[in-house]
Amino acid sequence: MSDRPYDLVIIGGGPAGLTAGLYAARARLRAVLLEKMPLPGGLAATTDLIENYPGYPQGVSGQELSARMADQAKRFGLTIVSDQVLSASLKDAPKAITTGSSRYLAEAVIIASGTQPRRLDIPGEIRLRGKGVSYCATCDGPIFKDKDVAVIGTGDSGLQEGFFLSRFARSISFVEILPHITGEPILLERLKEKEGVKFYLNQEITEILGEKRAESVVLKNVTSEEETSLSVQGVFIYVGLEPSTQWLGREVELDQAGYVMADGTLQTSVDGVFAAGDVRNKQCRQVATAVGDGALAAYMAERYLNTVESTHDA
């Protein structure tokens, strides 16, 4: 392991991390961005079409937007490293970030590690992951050409990704535990033009079955407790998100759900540690808000570093 001194380590390469990286690079901070995936973009990169990010009237694919953000940050000198953060020691100076292959030391840290899809924790989910069970329609959708698939969850993500799947799949069964669809009406309107779309409301998925690949799912009506089976070859799960903060331990204060607590300046409970994007305890998790967080976190980190420098100089 090597010890490398940095002004700033940014953890996470989604829109918040990349924006923080752009601002940090332009401020000429010695910054490094650590992203666990081979390509940056985070969850946004797995979104087929982002239509509510300003400046793209026709929408833009999450992959393209992420690649553009990364290119822009790199143009100003940001170093992006593909490495998974395993743990952190943030309370003492310098702060230390341990990854699978290195240990990074820095005066300031921006936590932008985002969120990850929540699992259902039902039989068959883990065993058949990658064998019909997926959390990313944009990544895996084309494999299901002319197949029957189930989309679990009818929030915005479920409807949007289901719409993407409708380009390929023969039929899409949306399964929702609530008695109503929770996503935006505009997304639902688009689905009405598609054939083979069916909704199973008030239904809980209890099991995914299949020997080598997913073959069917079992649904249970949460009111009547009636059980039914659907024959599907693909199961796409969109039942919410959870923060990617397991690696943090108790280094900073988290809320009950595990999101990082931060004040209006994005300062966490530890000096010099800032939180930006979806990982932060906040109301609206969008690319647009993540970008704003990233800019502010980098600005505040720079101010913090100036303070630390002044203290050292004195």
């Binding site: 109503h180 669809i181 009406p185 639902l188 309107e189 689905l191 009405k192 779309v197 069916k198 909704f199 409301l201 009506n221 009547s224 009636e226 039914t228």
Partner: peptide
């Protein structure tokens, strides 16, 4: 919710179990 319900009816017709 009302819009969603109306759209579901349009999409599915009656979906009684």
């Amino acid at each position: 919710s009302l819009i969603s319900s109306l759209l579901i009816v349009l999409l599915l017709g009656c979906n009684s179990e």
